[in-house]
Amino acid sequence: MSELLDVPQFPFPVTASHPGVWRRDQQSAAVIATAPAQTDFYINPGGADSTDAETTLTGATLLGLPPAGDFQFSCRVSVDFRSQYDAGVLMLWADERHWAKFCFELSPSSSPMIVSVVTRGVSDDANAFVVDDRTVWLRVSRIDRSYAYHASTDGTTWQLVRVFRLDDEIADHRIGLEAQSPSGDGCTVTFDHISFTSQRLTELRDGS
């Protein structure tokens, strides 16, 4: 059962997949999620013979349909990392076989890391860089029919992580937030400084 959440920073309605997971802090305007235990989004490219779960689509999402055209969607993500793969995520969603997530995630070596996953039938998982903190800035931009992921440690200087297409045959691509704890008993993720603008990103490589 889903629930509609009032988040003024989104200029469109957003719906939570898991009732009771998401809340908005009235003083700071941050959106806070308590990720349920054993939750994730992943479709293993190794298939049924892989040692990992083949398909997991249980992460707690907060998604909505943005207006048509280019946009930039960003926020600061803070995670109280407890277990491997705990993460706060910017999420793109077309359907259960076509989605992408931009993660601030705890790596197997217990280091906070920028990770991206693009799923077109199966998931293409890639690590970017380690962050020496429990807070980072993430941004997803739509440029014509492409998407770009940028990350920043200060909210000013951005580093390009990934450029990709999702699925042109699916008209509605929803965007929003996700919280996950694949191997643990849950974690708390804080999303603040949430910003959505229809301004086109002009410099792909340096993110300006």
Rank of each mutant, 00 (worst) to 15 (best):
131 V>M: 07
89 V>M: 05
98 H>K: 04
94 A>F: 00
158 W>P: 10
80 D>K: 06
79 V>A: 06
128 A>H: 12
137 W>D: 07
158 W>H: 10
42 Y>Q: 13
64 G>H: 08
59 G>E: 10
74 S>W: 03
61 T>W: 02
105 E>V: 08
63 L>V: 09
99 W>T: 02
87 A>H: 02
149 Y>R: 05
162 R>A: 00
90 L>F: 00
56 T>D: 10
139 R>Y: 06
140 V>R: 01
65 L>P: 00
83 S>D: 14
111 S>Q: 15
88 G>F: 03
152 S>P: 11
95 D>I: 04
51 T>W: 15
84 Q>W: 01
95 D>P: 02
85 Y>Q: 13
114 I>Y: 05
51 T>K: 15
79 V>H: 05
161 V>S: 01
123 S>I: 09
45 P>M: 13
70 D>K: 00
116 S>C: 14
116 S>M: 04
112 P>V: 10
133 D>K: 10
76 R>K: 12
154 D>R: 05
145 R>E: 14
56 T>W: 00
74 S>N: 07
94 A>R: 12
43 I>V: 15
81 F>T: 10
96 E>N: 13
80 D>F: 01
100 A>R: 03
65 L>H: 07
121 G>W: 04
131 V>K: 08
109 S>F: 08
112 P>Q: 07
146 S>M: 08
164 F>T: 01
75 C>R: 03
63 L>G: 07
98 H>P: 04
157 T>I: 04
51 T>H: 15
120 R>E: 14
66 P>D: 06
161 V>H: 01
110 S>I: 02
85 Y>E: 11
112 P>S: 09
94 A>G: 11
60 A>I: 09
129 F>E: 13
42 Y>S: 15
57 L>I: 11
117 V>G: 02
66 P>A: 05
61 T>G: 01
54 E>V: 13
153 T>Y: 01
124 D>F: 11
59 G>W: 03
91 M>I: 04
100 A>F: 04
154 D>A: 09
78 S>K: 13
127 N>V: 15
107 S>T: 12
126 A>Y: 08
104 F>D: 06
137 W>P: 05
123 S>W: 04
